[in-house]
Design a protein around this nucleic acid. Structure first.
Lengths: 158, 158, 158, 158
DNA sequence: TTTT
DNA sequence: TTTT
């Protein structure tokens, strides 16, 4: 009915850019979001949250965001269920970003979100040269639990 | 740095009320949050999200909320990590509610959140009679993955 | 950079539906959002907040929402500046809704927001018969301060 | 019922720090929040939004935030009504911050919000030396419309 | 201008 | 009243 998430944190890794079968861009990265531990002055707790971004935003994130950078994410919490290789159902939480803002420097470089012009490029336009190096699943920090290995177009959130 | 979640959905079960060792109330329940599946008119997708509430709110939820009821949750996304019986690290996502509003009827009965008077009762005040029936872990729908079985006071988010 | 507002409250009036010169639908209504007055048990304070909705959402609001109904608004806070008849600059705050959910009954009737199919009808499609009764400015509760009398297409938030 | 606002923007002025009669700190400042103007590539629109912060947060903002700095505000939208010198009712919108995060540099210096230890100092503890220079109403950028000149303790949001 |  |  209503599902809104806003986060500010630092990337735990460089965004991983991939493409669906029909050529739509998807990027994913981890975000470290910390908060004070109340009643334990000075101590902080950190949540490591998986972020997924689609389309033009995905490509902008892959281009401009890097490990350690500060970013704001405005999106929706999604619980995805899949079966792992042992046949068990696993639930993964991730925030599907509607907008990602780059906060560290050159804030103007931040991408514009879903209402921006050209936010929906022809999906098939993903150049072959770009798709080649993308799915390096071996070192994909999400691969294990987020199972994005075979991103179906059914997963498109738009 | 900043972590804000707002959800509206329906309870997938009655809230489960428990108490920490020092007597602080904690309630947990599932929330079904649906959304339209774009480009597939009429179809809807549902996210099942675990909610955790503390203190007076917990007791109000246990008292007034039930399976199927509509509720609004304002809180924070938390990724909790624990080791399961096979020694594997498991990550669970849950929304720690700051405020829960009851939306179905008698909206006035909704609890008031952290700024309300009396929001922080003496934890030890949890009556023995109340604590007795609480930890029915066998049929706790969260027990398996949220591992709240032994709620330590270190988990208190306040 | 980031501007997100989520409100739940009751309509203080029936939505007022109008059309821009190019035929885009706009609806506006007041929302009474109350909260507990802390340290004054039982007392509540109310904020009266102006909501603006565009396009298909506007028409759904005009059709299904009425004075007194409970609604959730997810949108953006906008401060609009205009000159009044005395030539003074006046600032009006309003929340431009991205999504409006109807919470009282038939929650399924709620509109789907910007990602829904058919969310962007050809603006010129606004039938003449519909436009006729719309701009009853005499009894428009917002007319005075929000100056929507002559809604220019420059105000379109999309 | 529910009222949540999250903003990221730049201060349009240094925070103005004052104290209520009973010694509670209040700071106010303007925040410039911009967004892309869709369909007008490259152009941006800016909302100038008044922020109010209380207690320890107020003092931290006054100390660390300055004109031009980037900040994130998590709070609640409040519409305050007062009578101006001509006896007309005026409505002012402001966001009452629950948390303010400093985003430009030294993010660790950011204050912790309402759950932080020592967030609620004895109000009377405001040192006389501090209160002296505070209410410079002549050059208060908000004085005119926000009428904070005589902050009553009735305005305390806690 | 004000909703339950 | 306006920030980069």
């Amino acid at each position: 009915m209503l599902n809104r998430v806003v986060l500010i944190g630092r990337l735990t890794q460089d965004p991983e850019l991939r493409y669906t079968n029909s050529g739509t861009a998807v990027a994913s990265f981890g975000l470290a979001v910390d908060r004070p531990r109340p009643n334990q002055a000075g101590e902080r707790e950190t949540d490591f949250i998986n972020i997924v971004v689609w389309q033009k935003q995905a490509e902008l994130c892959a281009q401009y965001l890097h490990k350690g950078r500060l970013a704001a994410v405005d999106g929706r919490l999604q619980i995805r269920t899949y079966e792992n290789r042992e046949g068990q159902k696993v639930r993964v939480a991730e925030v599907v970003a509607e907008t990602v803002r780059f906060l560290d420097r050159g804030d103007q470089s931040a991408s514009a979100g879903p209402t921006a012009p050209a936010a929906r490029p022809a999906p098939a336009a993903a150049p072959e040269s770009r798709r080649a190096p993308a799915p390096r699943f071996e070192d994909d920090p999400f691969a294990d639990d987020s199972q994005m290995i075979d991103i179906s177009d059914d997963d498109l959130p738009f």
